[in-house]
Amino acid sequence: MTEVPLLRAESVTKTFIVGGGPLTKAKVIKAVDQASFTVEREENVVLLGESGCGKSTLGKLTLGLLKPNSGRIEYEGKDIWALDKRGFSDFRRNAQVVHQDPYTSLNPVRTIYQSLAPAMIQNKAVSAKEAYNSVRELLSLVGLVPPEDFLDRYPSRMSGGQMQRVTLARAISLRPKYIVADEAVSMLDASLRLGAVDLMLDLQKRFGVSYLFITHDFGISRYFIKKSRGKMMVMYLGSLVEIGDGDSVVRSPIHPYTRILKESIPVPDPKIARGRPIPQLRSLEIPRLEETPSGCKFHTRCPHAIDICSTEVPLLRRVGTKLVACHLAGQFL
């Protein structure tokens, strides 16, 4: 791939300082630690991790909503923090987001039309006259039919699934090239989740966007990536620990953390579920973010850890078809 990737993160690190009042000492939290990856055009990237691992922070960094402490975010080959004002707003128009909670991401005192139209008019995607028709089209595109029923509705008169479709419509309204979907389907009920993923993939086919699909749900991310083209990345305490094409990370995980995660996920099949071994962990407690372990961050819980794991930070390296950050990877294959 000689082409310039749509988005590239290079050794991106983001720290937050919390506390620091008259009685408490300020603590430094490393939310994202030296993360590097690329998103190609029309490629999907799944970012998988447990709550608090920094996956949302990484998503915000790629959108330019947070500025990294070190490292670069490049969009179409250009460092987004070196762009001029015009270039940056151009980037922000091309990079959109769908948040986790549809209930709080729509303004409750605006109708759906009022939520969708201003951004399109302001960005001169459509004229004020055409806006009505464009919003109608958008709504039917995301399956809210007939659109006339929804245009003048307030969010309080819609279900969670319908609201999530509106936030998707809003995200694609400016025809972006990159969308961060931050736990976009996690709040939906089981019977609606697959439908929402299908809709996202359908929009991708029409408009050629790339998704960064952030989730904690192994199963849904596998469904998402199997139906499209892309890769999956696993994050633990701010570091990417495993990256693999397609659903290979779920199918044959290498990193001990990914393996244990997979073994912990309940399987909707009584016979398989009851025959599975209990994952062996050295410690059940997740280390606190302000004092992440030295060396490999997983070594305090890893059943395979040896001396080197507590002293040296493992870097992502190629193991088979994947990138894995583990000193012992290769022995596990």
Binding site: Q162, G195, Y223, V267, P268
Partner: peptide, 21 residues
């Protein structure tokens, strides 16, 4: 049942449930 993606097996025959709650 057919709308839960599993992490084991091939999990090919998944279908979303139509319609809203």
């Amino acid at each position: 049942l057919s709308s839960i993606p599993s992490v084991v097996g091939e999990a090919e025959d998944l279908r979303p449930v139509p319609g809203p709650l």
